[in-house]
Amino acid sequence: MIEYIIAAMFAGLLLHGIHRKVIARIQGRPGPPIWQEILHTLKFLGKESWIPKTASQGVYVAVVGISIAIWTAALMLLITQESLLLLFALYVLHKIVEHGIGLASGSPYAKFGAIRSVVSAASELPLLSSVALIYLITGSLMLRDIEAYQAINGPLLIVAFPAAVALYLVILSKIHYGPFSIVEAKEIVSGYWTEHFGVWRGLMNAAFGLKTFVLLYTFVVVFIGPIGLPLTLLAILILMITLSFVCAATPMLSPYDSVTVQTLTTGLIAIYIIYLGVFA
C-alpha cells in the first residue's frame, strides 16, 4: 500500500509542477522546471522546524497528520473501489483540516484564511449535487458499480455532464493559483498555511499533492470509466493542463464572488437534478 501512497504523492507533486509550468508559459514566462514542487517539498523537509510559541500545539501538529490520513484514505478508497459518498465525506473533512491549520497558529493571516475557508463552504456543495446526480443515474454509489455501469452504458461524462462540470469546478476550487483559491490568496500572505513551515509545510505539500492526484483520478474513474492505467494517467495530465489554462486565464475572484459562483453552479445542478427526478 505504501508504494501506492508514495507514488501518488510524487505524481501529484509533479502535476503541481506541470500546473505551474503551463501557467507560466501561458503568461509568457519561462516558469520553474516541472519537478520544482518535488524539490520544494524535499527542501522543506530538510529545514529547521519547531512549533510556534503561540500555537495550539495539538491542533498544529494533528492537522498535518490528519490531512495526510484523509487523502491516504481517499486513495485507498479508490484502490478498494468503495463508496463515492465516503469520498465526499473525506473531501468535506478536508475543510476541517484547512480550518484547523488556519486556527492553530494564532496568526491573524492564517485565521483570515481559515475564515475564508468557512465562508467558501459552498465549494463543497457542487460535489454533493454531483454525487446525487450520479446516484440518480447509476442507482449506486459504489465505485465498482459505477465502473460496471460505464462498461455497459458508456462514459458517465455524456449522460451526467452537469455532474462532471460540478466535479471539475470542485477540483478547480481546490487547485493552487485558481480563481477560487481565496483561502491562500497573497493579500493574506499565504492564507491558512502561512504559519506552517519546515517539516509541516513539506508534509502538507505532499498531502496536497496526493489530494490533487486523488481528485483528478476520481474524475477520470467516475466520468470516463476504466480505461487502463496509462490512458488514465494521460487523461489526468490532460485534465490538469485544462485546469492550468483556466487558472492562467482567470483572475482570482473576490471572496464574495467566489462564493456566489459556486452557489449558483450548485443551484443550477440542483435544478437539473430536480428536473431529472420529476420529468425523466
Binding site: 529545514k47 497528520g65 491516504t72 517539516v199
Partner: peptide
C-alpha cells in the same frame, strides 16, 4: 502519517 511525520522530523 506517523511514518511520514517521523521521517520528516528526522530530515530536519
Amino acid at each position: 502519517p506517523v511514518f511520514l511525520i517521523s521521517v520528516g522530523l528526522l530530515f530536519s
